[in-house]
């Protein structure tokens, strides 16, 4: 067991977990934040995407130890109370969420791409979101939503 300190959505957590416990499980089980989902457990589907110091990672591939001392943003940290982030609002109005299971990961990936935008360079959304699988939407409404932002 190791003591891990992480800041999730601005809140500090101190948990005692096996050092190789997946960050995904730490968030879901030890922090009680179930927004990040497990879709495949091998980094292929992106449903567990969270931001680690602002960078999108598959939390099913990150051992707890690696997150120690770092800042994490999960889907629960995007809205301010009832006020949705711009991307969340765009997903809602464009019909970019259907069953919703991929939505948290998809939103965080999109958030990372939007934050990482440099200068006036356009974002290659198709390439950037290709690691996040969705089986409902055919991605078209997702691509419409992100382009609004």
């Amino acid at each position: 067991m190791s003591e891990i300190r992480i800041t999730v959505n601005g809140r500090r957590f101190r948990v005692r977990v096996p050092p190789m416990k997946r960050l995904l499980d730490v968030l879901r089980e030890d922090c009680g934040l179930t927004g990040a989902k497990e879709g495949c457990g091998e980094g292929e589907c992106g449903a567990c995407t969270v931001l680690l110091d602002g960078e999108a990672v598959n939390s099913c591939l990150v051992p707890a130890l690696q997150a120690n001392g770092r800042k994490i943003t999960t889907i629960e940290g995007l809205a301010r109370g009832k006020r949705l982030s711009r991307l969340q609002a765009a997903f809602l109005s464009a019909g970019a969420t259907q069953c919703g299971i991929c939505t948290p990961g998809m939103l965080l990936m999109a958030e990372a791409l939007a934050r990482g935008r440099t200068g006036g360079r356009a974002i290659d959304w198709r390439e950037g979101l290709a690691g996040n699988l969705c089986r409902c939407t055919g991605y078209t409404k997702i691509l419409e939503a992100v382009k609004e932002v």
Binding site: G35, A36, E76, T97
Partner: peptide, 10 residues
């Protein structure tokens, strides 16, 4: 969709 808010907020 009526369940959209819960889905985009986790």
């Amino acid at each position: 969709r009526t369940d959209g808010f819960d889905k985009v907020t986790g």
